[in-house]
Computed example of a mutant assay.
Amino acid sequence: MNRKNFENWFKTQLVPNLPPKSFIIMDNASYHSGLLEEIPRKSWTNQRLTEWLKKKNIGFPEKAMKDKIWSIARRNCPSEKKYFLNEYVKPLGHKNLRLPPYHCQFNAIEMVWSECKRKYDQYISNFKGSPSEVLTTWERVISEISIDHWQEYVFHTEKVIEKAWEAIQVCDAYDILPLVITTDEDDDDEDNISDFSSDSDNTGEID
Score class of each variant (00 low, 15 high):
residue 70 W to L: 00
residue 55 K to R: 09
residue 20 P to E: 01
residue 75 R to C: 12
residue 203 T to K: 12
residue 147 I to H: 11
residue 81 K to V: 01
residue 55 K to Q: 11
residue 13 Q to E: 14
residue 194 S to W: 05
residue 46 N to M: 04
residue 167 A to N: 15
residue 93 G to P: 04
residue 23 F to Q: 08
residue 80 E to D: 08
residue 60 F to H: 07
residue 197 S to G: 06
residue 31 Y to C: 07
residue 86 N to W: 02
residue 193 I to F: 12
residue 108 A to Y: 02
residue 176 I to G: 12
residue 159 K to I: 11
residue 17 N to K: 13
residue 66 K to G: 06
residue 14 L to C: 04
residue 206 I to T: 03
residue 75 R to L: 15
residue 75 R to I: 09
residue 27 D to I: 07
residue 163 K to D: 08
residue 10 F to R: 03
residue 172 D to P: 01
residue 57 N to F: 02
residue 69 I to Q: 00
residue 64 A to W: 01
residue 81 K to N: 11
residue 156 H to N: 11
residue 116 C to M: 06
residue 199 D to I: 14
residue 154 V to W: 14
residue 51 E to A: 12
residue 79 S to L: 07
residue 177 L to F: 11
residue 189 D to P: 02
residue 131 P to L: 05
residue 107 N to A: 06
residue 175 D to K: 12
residue 126 N to M: 12
residue 45 T to M: 01
residue 138 W to T: 02
residue 75 R to S: 11
residue 74 R to D: 11
residue 46 N to G: 06
residue 73 A to C: 10
residue 58 I to Q: 03
residue 193 I to L: 14
residue 126 N to C: 09
residue 89 V to D: 00
residue 39 I to P: 03
residue 121 D to S: 02
residue 93 G to A: 04
residue 15 V to A: 03
residue 77 C to D: 14
residue 22 S to R: 04
residue 191 D to A: 08
residue 121 D to N: 10
residue 96 N to G: 05
residue 96 N to R: 09
residue 165 W to G: 08
residue 95 K to G: 01
residue 17 N to V: 07
residue 169 Q to P: 01
residue 47 Q to N: 10
residue 205 E to I: 04
residue 184 D to S: 07
residue 191 D to Y: 04
residue 191 D to T: 06
residue 119 K to N: 06
residue 106 F to I: 03
residue 166 E to C: 06
residue 194 S to G: 10
residue 66 K to L: 04
